[in-house]
Write a protein that binds this DNA or RNA. Structure first.
Length: 462
DNA sequence: TTGCGTAAACAAA
DNA sequence: TTTGTTTACGCAA
């Protein structure tokens, strides 16, 4: 594998190499593929292009590729195009509802971490690498029955296009999407297809909450469903990210979607202009130095103590949603988590999935608060409390060996891996609860349960 | 070491 | 076949 001798396989290599002596980095100029693709997408009226359209743009707009549109000579650079699209988190794939059409490719409003997707073979086997490997393996082995069962998470996502109670007129372009990474996540970045079945590939800390919401959203009235979808979207990037909303915001921008999600997101973000004309720069700044958004004691204090919604734009933009393994990113969610905890008494149950980073601002906006407690298992809340309380006292008995590195207001900061553990625990509880008290009961999924009863169930899930 | 270009394996549509 | 993901390699800065 791999090109031993590029010139042997790349007929343009010589020409390119020849020009390297000059000012050109590549045969077509100094722009990288990623930059060209960005340019192509940016030049599109809708700020989105299919792969084929990107090809077309290249052939049309880049002299070097003008005579390389035929399949004979295009394999190489098209492969590179695809490679770059997949590789860079700055590009996001958006499901194209039109049948037979390939996905839309858009620019990640958050800049995609200055291009590189977080799942490359950077450090040897960091979290992202592990995740990607796991995901890759799963993809190869699992990938089962996407969109099959009625109650599978996927069955709910097709609703996204129509956005139940909203306009359907644009359903063919309504593109539910998620960060590839998540990445999400995500995560992991990853990056994931908008198709929900890929949630099966999510690491547990992401999968579980997703299932929670999926189960809920597929069994609630449309209006509530929409709310939950919103949360689900948020949750996809949880426990700490805010990418999806941002992307939603952008997707609703150029695509002109009429969705409460996007509207709310805009409101939450504070100003859609954040991702308006310049899709990268404003957010890039926050990405490059996310902590700086919190460096101000006022902001931090507000996060930790204020009952009023903190600056929502901070909440929605400060975290890098794609790099859950990024320490700088995790710091913020940790703070946010604690911020949510700090306001727990005032605000009621804390989302067990540890995403007060979304909840808090949303609660302030009154948008999500009613729905979040629905899946908040009191036990997990209790666990959270038991975990958090000592931590807040500066004695983290349940903490892994990591040192919290207390400093000032951040003395509550927990080790990042603890965060994950906490998520896991909380999520497990959610799952147990959902499975045992709802799915197994066969009583339908009524999430409008009483917290007290829920607490009982959670205490003894079996 | 990192970013980039390139090739290629592989899978899904 | 096209699209998309991922891995691997070599090169240059």
């Amino acid at each position: 594998r791999g090109p031993g001798n590029p010139s042997a396989l790349d007929p343009d290599f010589a020409a390119r190499a020849a020009r390297k002596g000059g000012s050109r980095r590549n045969a077509w100029g100094n722009q990288s593929y990623a930059e060209l693709i960005s340019q192509a997408i940016d030049s599109a009226p809708d700020k989105r292009l299919t792969l084929a359209q990107i090809y077309e743009w290249m052939v049309r707009s880049v002299p070097y590729f003008k005579d390389k549109g035929d399949s004979n000579s295009s394999a190489g650079w098209k492969n590179s195009i695809r490679h770059n699209l997949s590789l860079h988190s700055k590009f996001i794939k958006v499901h194209n509802e039109a049948t037979g059409k390939s996905s839309w490719w858009m620019l990640n409003p958050e800049g995609g971490k200055s291009g590189k997707a977080p799942r490359r073979r950077a450090a040897s086997m960091d979290n992202s690498t592990k995740l990607s490997k796991v995901r890759g393996k799963k993809k190869a082995s699992v990938q089962t029955a996407p969109e099959t069962t009625a109650d599978s998470p996927s069955s709910q996502f097709p609703k996204w296009p129509g956005s139940p109670s909203r306009s359907n007129e644009d359903s063919d372009v309504w593109t539910s999407f998620r960060p590839r990474t998540s990445s999400n996540a995500s995560t992991a970045s990853t990056r994931r297809s908008p198709i929900l079945p890929e949630r099966d590939d999510l690491p547990d800390e992401e999968l579980l909450p997703s299932l929670v919401f999926s189960s809920a959203s597929s069994n609630v009235p449309p209006t509530v469903t929409e709310e939950l979808e919103l949360i689900d979207g948020l949750n996809l990037i949880s426990p700490s990210s805010s990418m999806l909303p941002t992307q939603q915001s952008v997707s609703s921008g150029p695509i002109q979607r009429d969705s409460s999600f996007s509207l709310r997101t805009r409101n939450t973000v504070g100003s859609a202009s954040t991702f308006g004309n310049s899709l990268f720069n404003p957010v890039d700044v926050s990405l490059q130095s996310p902590v700086s958004r919190f460096s101000g004691p006022q902001t931090l204090e507000a996060l930790l103590t204020s009952n009023s919604p903190p600056p929502s734009d901070v909440m929605m933009t400060q975290v890098d949603p794609i790099l859950p393994q990024t320490g700088s990113r995790l710091n913020n969610p940790t703070l946010l988590l604690l911020g949510g905890q700090a306001t727990q008494n005032k605000m009621g149950p804390v989302d067990p999935r540890g995403k007060p980073s979304e909840q808090q601002p949303e609660s302030g906006a009154g948008a999500l608060t009613p729905t979040l407690p629905m899946v908040a298992c009191p036990e997990t809340t209790a666990n959270l409390a038991t975990l958090k309380a000592p931590a807040q006292l500066g004695t983290p008995p349940l903490l892994p060996s990591g040192s919290p590195a207390p400093l000032g207001a951040t003395q509550d900061r927990l080790p990042t891996d603890l965060d994950l553990d906490m998520y896991m625990e909380n999520l497990e509880c959610d799952m147990d609860y959902i499975i045992n008290s709802d799915l197994m009961d066969g009583e339908g999924l009524d999430f409008n349960f009483e917290p007290i009863l829920v607490g009982t169930k959670c205490q003894d899930p079996v």
